[in-house]
Amino acid sequence: MKPENILSQLNIFGQCKQYGISFWQCPQFLFLIMGLINIASSLTAWSIGNKFIDSPEAVILIVLSVTVILFIIAFIIVQSFDKLAQANRMKSEFISIVSHQLRSPLTNLKWALDFLTSGNGGMISEEKKVEYYKTLSENAERMGELIDNLLIVSRMEQGKIVLKKEMISLEELIRGLIHDFQPFATASNVKIKFKAEDKMPKIFADPYQVKLLVDNLLNNAIRYTKNGGMVEIGLSSRKEKLFFEIKDSGVGIPKEDQKYIFQKFFRAGNALKQQTQGSGLGLYIAKSVVASSGGKINFKSEEGKGSTFWFTLPIK
């Protein structure tokens, strides 16, 4: 081992910081503490044993209690190793899911390009070519969106998101998003209704984050609503908070899937059947945004009938 490697091994605080867990869960730190306790307890037992040599029971008792403490610390160390192993496993799963999700649009891009650039491309009309260009652009966008979502999640998990709060009108933000989603809603044959109480107060929040939150909920509501459905949005104020509600007449979330719905990458069984595309990150992001803004989020849903998601955000 090179000297600088030994030094880096000794930099316990640096190593623990890299793991992203607290010192009391960090194996290196706990090993140091256990070592110190080991030395201290041996010295104490020796000096106490010297003084109270007449009472061997007292020495036994002290040794026993020290053993118990060491046992507990060892247990915590094992647990934190387990946590690290779990984090590692999640990382592998993450990579496997993400690479698969990126591969689908990538194949679409690659094969559409193959088609356009191969000699056989000459056999297709200009009109068809335009269709293929559209495919290219749609799939590039799909990849871009997925990467954006992944970066957001990664930043959130590392606690790197700094909220840039300002006074914003949630009502205006919602109206803007409904406008942006109108073409998608029309194409899906879904109507969007929006009702807000009069004179809604502005809120002190990060507009980018709140937009992300409403965007994800609205996107889901339209995406999982069958043809001819309706999405209803309501906004009201309750005490020191604004209450947002979005109700759809969509596929709903099966009971057995409801407890996992905010988990990263989780997609309900019927959502998978309805729409094979989707990253399973939208609601995870929504929940993280609400949590970091000091609000609450939840839902009620019945399979086949629809879902209602709501969140609150503090006004100040």
Binding site: N108, A112, F115, Y132, N139
Partner: peptide, 8 residues
């Protein structure tokens, strides 16, 4: 199920 691939 990918419409783009169906086409290509």
């Amino acid at each position: 199920d990918e419409q783009a691939l169906q086409k290509t």
